[in-house]
């Protein structure tokens, strides 16, 4: 199932590039052609294009190109990038690691915090009145805007944290984790982390609030209340029911959250894929974008799989194979 999704997604990406107007080969060499000081004659340009077409295999039939594309994918070869001179996969692998360092804690923290806040909002009416606008404003803020806001407020105006990160900040901490590298890492890590958590927390909280209200109004909760259970106990049971859709929701929302994280990280020059992607888009680096799209799509699908696995472990109905209920 997940493999099929991946195959279809990758094929879509490949088709998009193949069907794109404009020659990828021309795009790939456009920088070389436009470099000032080296005027190339039309024949040279033609020759260069032909070399690239051959190198990229664009002069072969479609099916063969498609097969070759998969073959290259398994080899880990993603084509020729004009921006990243070494192999694309290695560059992306490092950035993927850095992104995971940002994304995994942020997603987990925001999920737990958001659900807690949502449940609070559903339980206490006077808290709810204050929380609703805050929750909804948080969730409707685009990720990059929250990043800019926090970075500007806490990084530029009040210099609490450093708003720009360098890859050495992260590498030094990973190479030798001690107090000084840790503070340096946290100093730059906090802002992207915080902006991600704040925005996605809003989404979880708003979802949890609605689910929780439904549960608290349901028959079993009313029955428990009438039996004289404390509000706290009733809410505890309602929470267990309301959390299930939130776990499935986690799998569904992962794509959005991960893209949001990529966008946020680009603002803080976080050495993830975000800033690379923005440069790639502006310089039309087709193969780099293709590689990023494929690797990150794969990552989202794998993450989905993991969430499903966790869900089946947590939900006793699925774990025990109970059908119905």
């Amino acid at each position: 199932m997940y493999l099929a999704v991946f195959v279809v997604a990758v094929t879509l990406v490949w088709l998009l590039i193949r069907l794109a107007p404009g020659d990828p080969a021309l795009l790939a060499i456009s920088r070389a052609v436009m470099t000032p000081g080296t005027p190339l004659s039309p024949e040279q340009v033609k020759q260069l294009i032909d070399t690239y077409r051959h190198k990229l295999g664009l002069d072969r039939p479609w099916l063969e190109q498609y097969a070759m594309f998969w073959y290259n994918l398994f080899r880990g070869y993603f084509g020729v990038s004009t921006m990243v001179q070494e192999d694309i996969l290695g560059t992306i692998a490092v950035r993927l690691r850095n992104d995971l360092i940002l994304l995994v804690p942020a997603i987990i923290v925001s999920w737990f915090l958001g659900n807690w806040i949502g449940a609070m909002a559903a339980r206490y009416k006077n808290v709810d009145r204050v929380l609703i606008p805050i929750i909804y404003i948080l969730t409707s803020t685009p990720y990059f805007l929250m990043g800019l806001l926090l970075g500007y407020a806490l990084g530029v105006v009040y210099h609490v944290f450093t708003p720009t990160m360098t890859s050495t900040d992260i590498d030094a901490f990973l190479a030798s984790p001690n107090w000084s590298t840790f503070t340096r890492f946290i100093n730059t890590y906090t802002l992207p982390f915080l902006s991600m958590v704040l925005v996605s927390m809003g989404g979880w909280a708003s979802g949890m609030r609605t689910l929780m209200i439904y549960e608290l109004e349901s028959n079993y909760a009313r029955y428990m209340e009438s039996l004289g259970f404390s509000n706290r106990r009733v809410a505890g049971y309602a929470f267990r029911y309301a959390i299930n859709p939130q776990i499935t929701g986690l799998g569904i929302q992962l794509g959005t959250v991960i893209v949001g994280g990529i966008v946020v990280s680009s603002i803080f020059n976080y050495p993830g894929v975000g800033i690379l992607l923005i440069y790639a888009i502006n310089y039309r680096d087709v193969f780099l974008i293709q590689a990023i799209a494929i690797v990150y799509t794969a990552m989202v699908i794998v993450a989905n799989f993991v969430v499903d696995l966790i869900y089946s472990l947590l939900d006793p109905r699925i774990r025990l194979g109970v059908v119905g209920v």
């Binding site: 998009l16 590039i17 794509g255 959005t256 799209a293 799509t297």
Partner: peptide
């Protein structure tokens, strides 16, 4: 639902 469609939007937007 399973794939991040933003990447597809991005590629379509980029080329077209």
């Amino acid at each position: 639902i399973a794939i991040p469609t933003v990447f597809l939007m991005l590629m379509i937007g980029l080329f077209y």
